[in-house]
Design a protein around this nucleic acid. Structure first.
Lengths: 244, 244
DNA sequence: ACACCACTGCGTACCTGCTACGCTATTTAG
DNA sequence: CTAAATAGCGTAGCAGGTACGCAGTGGTGT
């Protein structure tokens, strides 16, 4: 009967509340919220330690372990709780508008928690919020008449791309904040180090000056994101035309 | 003059060798190789500790710090050294064959080091091996006549997608090895937990049985990878047609 | 030949972080 | 009222990163 994996049961808050024993002074929600707050404030997932979370809640470190089996489990809970539900799709939009809307939504949601991309992936989406996002992507494809399996493939690929892009963007942004010069000198550094005979294509890019003049970092990373997204969506369009 | 970032200088082995002092019994190559061996053997990046690396080399922990500034720096060196150079492109192939060849090459190279996707991203590619891969992707696009900036965008997007897919695949594979049942019951778990009224698109996918019958894991993850890759490449084709 | 000094390897020690274990206090079922 | 179940927590063990300073080593310049 109750064969749900423990993490999943916990994310859905499905464990039965005990009848005996002292009233808890601590709730799972409090713990997860405190952990997320710490990560947000420090902009650093590594700042989340069991001790720090407990301290913020005015409890001892070990008290947390009555509610959470391990720190890994806490991270899994964070990965679901940090994303609020997606806004519902505007009515009657075509799939492309829908997926663009969806991708922007993910972008905005994750941007609020720059540590999100550093979370270990523990399995396929299983928590309520993550599944809601998954459902939203599938919903955008509802009108296409594609077979369900293809919709899943498209949605998964999109999730992968978006998460990959976020990870890249966030890590680069962190590096940029630490040490802007490394980025500003990127073109110059490559020029110093590369042998044009061995890497001719890269040398041509350097000659064209693509890596000089790094402007606004965030803006440029947005442009890259959109560019890749449009490529992927063009691919989806081609696929729909081929199959439909 | 010598304004190269220290990590980059190290990856290219560009620091001048000291004239005085005892002969080193330890080389940077040894350290990086040992670290990679440990990660490979344990299939786990976390198994790489400074103490463990030193032990394998018959030295003390602190001796490593004469060659490497910190563990982070060691990780950066690993991220370049773990990927051997790409095989040269077959001559006279169109861009699509070239990029597919390239993506397969990345796949094979990274598969040898399943921990690779867990490495923190420290910045844009800067080591000799990483840049060689970057160059190879750009080289595959050489015949398209696209502006250099577009080539960079396409190559970056592709790298992002491939790395994201690897990360997903490797983490899921690890989870699957730990606990196969969670994956086999994925469909059943979702069915238990989802309200079809709130997530109709997902419910339809479940009804269609897409998540039942999980077959060979590795094979399926290969299929997903190819599917997404083809979508992206279709998008590139559309872009080339539009611009060229 | 000798003194100097940059450099390597390393022992020690400190700090942070996760968590197993067991005690005590609290609440409710019977 | 007693027993069982449960919450919080103090202690302690273990692992891992790394700052610091000492000892030995071997070119360099006098």
């Amino acid at each position: 009967m109750d064969e749900l994996p423990p993490d999943v049961a916990l994310m859905w808050r499905l464990r039965e509340t005990p009848r005996r024993g002292p009233k808890p002074t601590l709730s799972l929600d409090d713990i997860v919220r405190a952990a997320i707050e710490i990560a947000d404030e420090e902009n650093d997932l590594a700042a989340v330690s069991m001790a720090r979370v407990a301290e913020r809640l005015g409890n001892s470190t070990m008290a947390l372990y009555r509610h959470v089996k391990s720190k890994d489990e806490l991270l899994i809970l964070m990965s679901d709780a940090a994303l609020e539900r997606p806004e519902p799709l505007p009515a009657d939009v075509d799939w492309r508008t829908g997926l663009t809307f969806w991708a922007d939504g993910v972008m905005t949601a994750v941007r609020k928690h720059s540590w999100y991309a550093k979370l270990p992936i523990s399995g396929p989406p299983a928590g309520p919020n993550n599944l809601a996002w998954f459902d939203a992507a599938l919903g955008a494809l509802a009108g296409t008449g594609l077979p369900e399996e293809a919709k899943v493939g498209i949605a998964m690929g999109l999730i992968t791309y978006v998460q990959g892009e976020m990870r890249m963007a966030m890590d680069l942004a962190a590096g940029f904040a630490d040490n802007p010069d490394v980025f500003r000198q990127y073109g110059a550094t490559l020029a110093r180090v590369i042998d044009p005979k061995q890497m001719p294509a890269l040398a041509r890019v350097l000659d064209a000056g693509v890596f000089d003049e790094v402007g606004d970092f965030e803006q440029e990373s947005d442009q890259d994101f959109d560019f890749g997204l449009q490529l992927y969506l063009d691919g989806v369009a081609a696929f729909i035309e081929r199959v439909g």
